[in-house]
Simulated scan of single mutants.
Amino acid sequence: MQVFSTFDESTYLELAISSLEQKGIKKEDIFAVPLHNRQEERKIFDTLHRSDGISLIDIAMALATAFSVIGASVGFILAWGPIYWGLIGAFIGFILGLGIKLFMVKVVRKQRTPLRGKSAEVILIVDCDDTKAELVEGILWEHLAMGVAKVIKK
């Protein structure tokens, strides 16, 4: 049976491995795989196949609507008329909203959640007998594993 678990890179992982070795699990049956941090910056613009969940045009559309209504209202007095001034207001509102959202994503959010400062996780794989699976799982939970799963080998 194989027991998979994830840990933060910390001393609890080392304590879990040494505790497993003390309980009779061989070093050859314990396999730790560190995950690497993301090195490149996240892309701002979404594609058809990938989305990060951040919408860039939500504020832009709201401001475009508001500015187009204001532009159309004022356009009754101005020379070009309400249609042209409504379109001009919509364009100005959209550009302003897009600029605000880009500023928020690139500057404000980057300061709040630094991506490079996070430590990566470690996947720990323990190969053991079915009789020791409960013991191994208990040891891993004891040493603050983030998640544990058991897989039966055939």
Score class of each variant (00 low, 15 high):
Val107Ser: 08
Thr65Ala: 06
Ile152Thr: 06
Ser68Asn: 10
Phe7Leu: 10
Met1Asn: 09
Ser19Trp: 01
Lys132Gly: 10
Ser119Thr: 08
Glu137His: 02
His49Ile: 02
Ala16Pro: 00
Ala32Thr: 07
Glu41Gly: 12
Lys26Glu: 10
Gly75His: 15
Arg38Pro: 00
Arg38Ala: 13
Pro34Ser: 11
Asp58Leu: 09
Met104His: 15
Ile17Met: 02
Val107Gly: 05
Gly75Ile: 12
Asp52Gln: 05
Tyr12Lys: 10
Ala16Ser: 00
Ile54Gly: 04
Leu13Gln: 06
Phe91Ile: 12
Gly89Asn: 05
Ile30Ala: 00
Gly75Phe: 14
Ile88Ser: 07
Lys118Pro: 05
Asp46Ser: 15
Phe45Gly: 11
Val148Arg: 02
Phe45His: 12
Ile83Thr: 11
Ile57Trp: 07
Glu9Leu: 15
Gly138Phe: 08
Gln39Glu: 13
Gly93Asn: 02
Phe103Thr: 13
Ala62Trp: 01
Asp58His: 13
Gln111Pro: 09
Gly93Tyr: 00
Ile88Gly: 04
Ile123Ala: 03
Val105Met: 10
Cys128Pro: 01
His49Pro: 03
Glu28Gln: 06
Phe45Tyr: 14
Gly53Val: 01
Ser73Trp: 11
Ile17His: 02
Leu115Lys: 14
His49Asp: 11
Gly99Leu: 06
Phe76Val: 11
Lys101Ser: 15
His49Asn: 14
Glu142Tyr: 01
Lys106Ala: 14
Ile100Tyr: 08
Lys26Gly: 12
Leu56Pro: 14
Val105Arg: 14
Ile70His: 07
Lys118Asp: 12
Glu142Leu: 01
Asp46Trp: 08
Pro82Asn: 06
Lys110Glu: 07
Leu56Phe: 11
Val108Pro: 03
Gly147Trp: 01
Phe76Arg: 09
Ser68Lys: 07
Ile92Lys: 09
Glu28Gly: 06
Leu144Asp: 08
